[in-house]
Every structure is written in C-alpha cells, then in structure tokens.
Design a protein around this nucleic acid. Structure first.
Lengths: 225, 225
DNA sequence: ACTTGTGTGATAGTATTGCTATTGTAACAA
DNA sequence: TTGTTACAATAGCAATACTATCACACAAGT
C-alpha cells in the first residue's frame, strides 16, 4: 500500500488509470525497470508484457502507445518533484533559502524515502535523465500541449520561476532560468557519466554534489543585484 | 557544385561517404527534408527511398541505420557551425567580442549563405532544434563515444570553453557554460514556438533576437568578475 | 440464484518496419 | 577484353505496433 500521497495527472495520458488496479501498478513498476534496462527505443509493450507475465493486449488497455506511457512516467516524476519541493519549502521564509532547497530537491529527489511501492524512484530518476526529453520533442507537441499533456512540467516551472522572481524581481528571465535548472540538473548528470568533456562536474557513486554546487553558483551569479 | 568547404566527419558514421556520390548527396538532401517533415520517429529508409526515387537497399549501403544517419546530420551541423565560428572570429582580438560573435553564430547559423547545395541549412537548423538531442541520448552512448562519434560536438564545446576561459580565467565551469549555450540556443528556440511557458523569450518570423539577447545576458552575468 | 458488467488472458491477424541477400545491368577502368 | 563498381529491383524474414474476438473469473445488483 502507498502512504497517502496521490499523484494527480491529466487523465488523457492513459486509457485506464494505472494507479487504480494492480495490473496498472505492475505496468508502471515494470515499465520503469525495463526502459531503464534496454532503453526507450528498444522497449516494446510485448517485451513488457512478457516481463510482467501478462499480455500485450492488456498493456494496450492502459496506454495507447509507448510514447504516452513515457509521457505518463515523466509527468509522474515532475509531479512528485513538485510535491517534494512543497513539503521541503513550506516552512522557509527566505526565497534565497527556498531556491537552494529547490535545487537540492531537483538533484537529489531520487534519494527520498520511497513514497509509492510500485515506483522505484531511484531508477525512475535515471530514466528521466536518459530518456526524459524524448517525451516533449515529438511531432505532436502542439496537439499534446493544447490537451494539457505537459501541464505538470509547466506548473512546476511556473512555481520555481515565482521563487526566482521573489529573489530578484528585476531578473528578466525567471521561467527560462527555472526550465534551465531542470534541464541542467539532468543533462549534466548525464554528461558527467557519459560525455564528461561536455561539462566540468564529476559524478561518482551517486554523489551529485558537484552538480548541485554548479547550479547554485550559476543561480547566484544570475540573480545577483 | 559546392564552393570549396569540405565538412570532415568521422568515417565510422557511414558505410560509404555520402559526400562523394550524387546518390549520397541525394540521401543527405532528402533525409533532411523528410525528417523535418514527418519527424524522426516516423522517418524510415523506405519512405526516404520512395521520396528520392531510389530503393531502400541503396540507402542501406550508405548508412547502417537511421540513428547513424541522424548522428551524421547532427555532426555535420556542428562542424559547419564550428567552421562559421572560425571564419567569423579569426580577425577579432577581444575574447569578449569573440564570445558575442559565437553566440550570434549559434543562433543565426541557419541564415548564412548556403555553402553546399545538397544541404538546406535552414531546414537542417530546425531539424537540429527538434531532433538533435536524440542523437546522443541513446543506450549506445558509451560505445559510440569511444569510437569518436561525438567528437565534432565535443571539439566545438572545447573551442568555445577556451574563449570563455580567456574572458574570465577564474570561471570554474567553462565547458558546462559552453554546452549549455548550445543547448539553450536550441531548446529555447523550441520552447518559444511550442512550449512558451517554459521560457521568457519570444520568436516570430525567424527573428531569434530575444534568444540571442538572453544568451548574452546570461553569459555576461556568469563571467562578470 | 440469475443476470450483467468489468477486468484480464489467450489467441489471431495485419500492415509496417528494419533489415539482409541475390541478381541483373550500365558505366567505367585496367 | 575483362573486371570492378554502383545501383536498381526484387524477395524474404523476423520483429514491431497495433486491433479484434472470444472466453472466463468474479463482483455487484436484482
């Protein structure tokens, strides 16, 4: 059983709500593991069904296709990060301090105590780093955007942009900085491991401290008055 | 006929050098147009062959698969940007000024006079914005990286990082800033058009001036002593 | 107890995708 | 002349991305 938090997502992302049934929860659990294992391109519903001991047709009853399943996982992740940011910042007055906590949460979300048993947050974090951008670089962005498929990510961006504007109301690019923080938190974690010449930070044994420090310094510089 | 510049790329990216034959040049020309038109996921060698009036098997003689074709196009693009940066900065002494020119080149590369007749640089620019990251977010990054498949991008990053370090030798993250400039130049052009709430810049009618200004301001802030 | 519906498994089927292999032939080079 | 290269044409195959149908278990409503 989960411990109370309910991640709410656009119900057009799925055909049947996977959070409601045990088959649905299994689809979430195993798709995270399988995409992480073989990559999104090689991932198919057939392979997922075999891994789960279910059938392809059953998976198709929950998600129209693998792209929407990925979008579901990505939305789930950002909504969860958003929730973590809320509980970590609710008692902090200073916007400077809140922004620091936000950056820490972005980088270290995966280390939080697992909130929901069918989601391995640590593996999901790795998946979002490696495959996350594929969810919105698609020919159907505009259509999917009007249907609200990206609203979790956009609302989180808005929230962080708000804090940025509190820190420095004259800063002209609060949303851009916010989305850039999300992107950099992930891309530089990826670069550090796979393409180290594209960054200056190093990551070893799940120690993302250098990524966090870099994001803090960038933010401080940009928001200095 | 092309006018003299020769883009040199890792020869493991292709099976036969597409720059050498007219069929190869046709593959490049039409793949750019077709990927831009239908998106990378829907793009297949069969559709390309039909569009070109050739056959699937012939395309396979040039590229192992569509992923390597995309990587070829991406590498071509960054090598071309690198060339433009060289000719635009060669006579500029001040590193501050050179960095400004680099940013302008990143954002406006597509407006340059076409250098090679089988590459529509303007369409290629749009393709790189929409599909470019898919070239290195793949399960095979590590293997492909050791084979030098990303060396064009990494060398460009190195070059720009060098200029950044000239501007401010104490700045701790020259590579990260360089790669972030490339990413932001593209991602915020994409956001401005498709997901405007993720950014603060607007793009209309191929006017990317706001993207350029933002990148300049970010860079100035970060490199201020 | 009797229906009714819902969720799932089992099986089949289809068009497309992602390749590989073979053959014929025109051009060109030795 | 012979050999080689480049390419079109065709075939074939396993995997992918679905869609459809049927059967069955089980729970809820009457």
């Amino acid at each position: 059983m989960s411990i109370g938090i309910k991640i709410s997502l656009n119900d057009k992302l799925y055909l049947r709500d996977p959070q409601e049934t045990s088959l649905g929860q299994n689809i979430i659990r195993h798709s995270i593991l399988l995409i992480d294992e073989i990559g999104f391109e090689a991932f198919t519903f057939k392979k997922l069904a075999i891994k789960m001991g279910s059938t392809e047709a059953s998976v198709y009853r929950y998600f129209e296709n693998k792209h929407l399943l990925l979008l579901y996982l990505v939305s789930w992740y950002w909504e969860w990060v958003s929730y973590l940011i809320d509980i970590h910042t609710m008692n902090i007055k200073s916007p400077q301090e809140r922004l620091k906590v936000i950056i820490g949460t972005l980088v270290y979300a995966y280390k939080e105590n697992p909130a929901i048993d069918y989601v391995n947050e640590s593996v999901l974090h790795r998946l979002i780093i490696a495959e996350g951008t594929k969810a919105y670089y698609t020919k159907l962005v505009d259509k999917e955007n009007t249907e609200g498929f990206f609203s979790n990510y956009k609302m989180l961006c808005e929230k962080v942009a708000g804090v940025i504007s509190e820190v420095n109301p004259d800063f002209a690019y609060p949303r851009a900085l916010a989305s850039n923080l999300f992107e950099m938190a992930n891309s530089h974690s990826y670069f550090a491991i796979h393409l180290p010449r594209l960054t200056d930070v190093r990551v070893k044994d799940d120690d993302y401290e250098e990524v966090k420090t870099m994001l803090e310094k960038f933010t401080d510089s940009l928001l200095a008055k």
